[in-house]
Simulated scan of single mutants.
Amino acid sequence: MFRAYFNAPRRRRRAVVLMSLICTIVVGAILLQPSNPLPLESRYQKWSLEGEPLANWSGPWACVEDQTTGLLWEVKTDAENIRHGDWTYSWYSNTASRGIPNQGDCYFERDRCDTEDLIRRANKERWCGLDGWRLPSSKELMSLLNFSVKPGRPKITVEFFPHTQKANYWTADFNARLTGVYAQFTVGAMALSFGDGRQSALPYQSAEFVRLVNSNQPK
């Protein structure tokens, strides 16, 4: 086989090399595609604020169930309330005795703008009929990344998750060592950007966005 290749005309050898290169690129691209076992219209299920299932073409909706992970996610709005997509929060957990309270920017509450207060309010209001709302782990939040979106859009399926910012969202992972310009603060919490899909450790007092998650399901 090798003798036949080297005895072939130069033009034919170039064609063989080019075809092999194209095949390698195509196979590589397929292998690098995200593993989504369900199409988007089957993967996500909308839920009302009261915990009722909704058709995917209807609305408004307050939560989205990811049927590949079993997780229920809050959905942001543009209404002037606790679920507004523009509000930011500092990372704070009284249970873990970590973080900095009330360093975010949310207009619904003048005295508290931190992740613990948002979680407390979400559970008190029983979004989608549930308590048990919490910050997602880095792995959980990364499961929402969608790198197939159009350029300039947040790297998430905005048809189900509107009002998502191309910015950092807090995760539950804390005690992360800070480096560079943040080194003076020593440790902080991990955040994931839906702008570029990257994770980074940020100081607890940073005002960042939040998307809460729930491991339970509406009845």
Rank of each mutant, 00 (worst) to 15 (best):
S206Y: 04
A207H: 13
I156T: 03
G85T: 05
R198G: 09
G51P: 02
D173N: 13
C106F: 13
P218V: 01
Y89N: 01
T164M: 15
R43K: 12
P101M: 02
L71N: 06
W47S: 00
E41M: 06
L178N: 05
A29Y: 11
E65K: 08
R98E: 14
V75S: 01
P53W: 07
T69M: 09
M190D: 03
L38A: 07
D111E: 15
R14I: 14
M19S: 15
S20P: 02
S93I: 09
G129T: 06
Y169V: 00
F174L: 05
R12W: 11
R198M: 12
Q33V: 15
F6D: 11
C23F: 14
R126N: 05
S148I: 04
L135S: 04
N94Y: 10
A15H: 09
D196K: 01
E52A: 02
R83V: 05
E50C: 04
G28I: 07
W47F: 12
P9Y: 10
Y92V: 06
A183E: 07
L40A: 09
A201L: 03
A122G: 03
Q33M: 15
R177Y: 05
P101D: 03
G129C: 05
E159Q: 12
R12A: 13
Y5S: 06
Q33P: 12
L49F: 09
E50F: 08
P39V: 07
N168H: 08
R3C: 03
M1N: 08
L178P: 01
N102M: 09
E159N: 13
T95F: 12
K155P: 03
K155Y: 11
A4F: 01
N94I: 06
V213E: 02
W57K: 11
A191D: 03
S138D: 09
L31F: 14
P60R: 02
F194P: 01
N94M: 08
K219G: 09
I25R: 06
W170L: 02
L202G: 01
R10P: 12
F194C: 02
E140T: 05
T77V: 10
L18K: 12
P162I: 04
L118M: 04
A62H: 00
E41F: 10
A191V: 02
C63S: 04
D111T: 13
I119F: 01
V27C: 11
